[in-house]
Design a protein around this nucleic acid. Sequence first.
DNA 1: CGCCGTCTTGAAGATTCTCAACACCAGTGG
DNA 2: CCACTGGTGTTGAGAATCTTCAAGACGGCG
Lengths: 240, 240
Amino acid sequence: MTFSFDALEKKLSAFADLPRDEIGMLISERARVLLADEEELSQGISDHHAFIILEGWVASFKLLEDGARQIIDFHIPGDFLGLRTILLRTSDHSFVPVSDVTVCRIAKQDLVDTFQKSPRLAAAVFWAASRDEAIMVEHLINIGRRDALTRTAHYLLELGARMRLVGLGTFKEYDCPATQYQLGDALGLSAIHINRTLRKLREMGLLTFQDGRVVFDDLDELIKLANFDIGYLDQLEPII
Amino acid sequence: MTFSFDALEKKLSAFADLPRDEIGMLISERARVLLADEEELSQGISDHHAFIILEGWVASFKLLEDGARQIIDFHIPGDFLGLRTILLRTSDHSFVPVSDVTVCRIAKQDLVDTFQKSPRLAAAVFWAASRDEAIMVEHLINIGRRDALTRTAHYLLELGARMRLVGLGTFKEYDCPATQYQLGDALGLSAIHINRTLRKLREMGLLTFQDGRVVFDDLDELIKLANFDIGYLDQLEPII
DNA sequence: CGCCGTCTTGAAGATTCTCAACACCAGTGG
DNA sequence: CCACTGGTGTTGAGAATCTTCAAGACGGCG
């Protein structure tokens, strides 16, 4: 069976000029491709495995005591899951598939070995991980200081840019399998208010969120409304 | 002139059993101690210097287009400033002193050299940086899904725990130089609402925030109210 | 067909914000 | 010495935003 790691390649090659076969080291024969469900993901990570998403979306989240859920981030093809958890033992949040998901499973030891064989690859991966932290900072700002309209617009613009950077979207549209409930849990809003907000964005002629697809009806105006700056997603090569 | 790096030592030794002189390598003769103002901090970081806070608090923040400010985090003694910025070129936020601050300035090259001489130290520092990311996730959850009362309680509990871990606070109280405005900008609330919330916490007999000092009047009840779990601050040793 | 998850809309209510006013204090200059 | 100023903290009242509760529509799937 063959599978594509286009997304991963695109993502990492934005950071360093890695030959394709070096990236392929991450996906060795010992790695397994599987259609992941929630059980497989959490089981795998607690067994010291990381995952690379090949197809589909996964959400990382944390449940609160009162039943509320905060989605920390959506993870798209090319993203790593569980990197920090297995390398650094810090965990405390869970993963759930947002759509049908194909992942590549990597045992911790294989990951460490690969990083030792290719420090360039290791640097690229850590570099990508650091971008994820920048994304989280932006989410913090988004939730802390923007109202529902600009917050939603900003988030959907970010997801669009991330999809585009791995070749899965255009400036016009991208597939977004998240439900309105999940979007609400990511943005710290109720699903009902997300619904009203999406309607407003649609009525303003800016963006259509429908049938698992986001269409930018007026990208320029949308970027202006959300004050979206792609900078934090589109970083230069690392210095070290 | 002598100065203390107790806080840094306590922080790093929680992650690895580092001898004191190895930690001292970070603070070489070439490093300078200075009372930092905003100008010095931002200038230093754009000149490829990192800082270690020896005394006082610093806030990292981002200004939005409409003038709103989101404080990303407060940084306390023992914390690094600008690590990611100078090593990985990702920046986009600014720093401002919250109190009088003494820092130790480290040139990028010295930092890289030190890390090569002591991989254990490098691991400990990156480990500490990864804890910072866990803190940010917790802030995201806090802002996204908790109301003003539990959000404020949780945040002040976290700051107290962090201060205690570097020997600057007890289970009863700690110095907190942040103003109510700054606290509001950190929590995504207006300063006025912070004021009312603090009053409520005081009237409930849980916590007193006054004269630059936080006193836990009823720590157990406070922890219960905020569902505070110290786990994310108190990690085990890294695996790698 | 009936059921479940998702989407949609209305109305009432809660939380939080904005505006406005005032107290307090430290510093500053007359 | 005192008035003035700017930063911080405090309180009230009205307004905006967002949530909750409730109900119904729609489609996929057993």
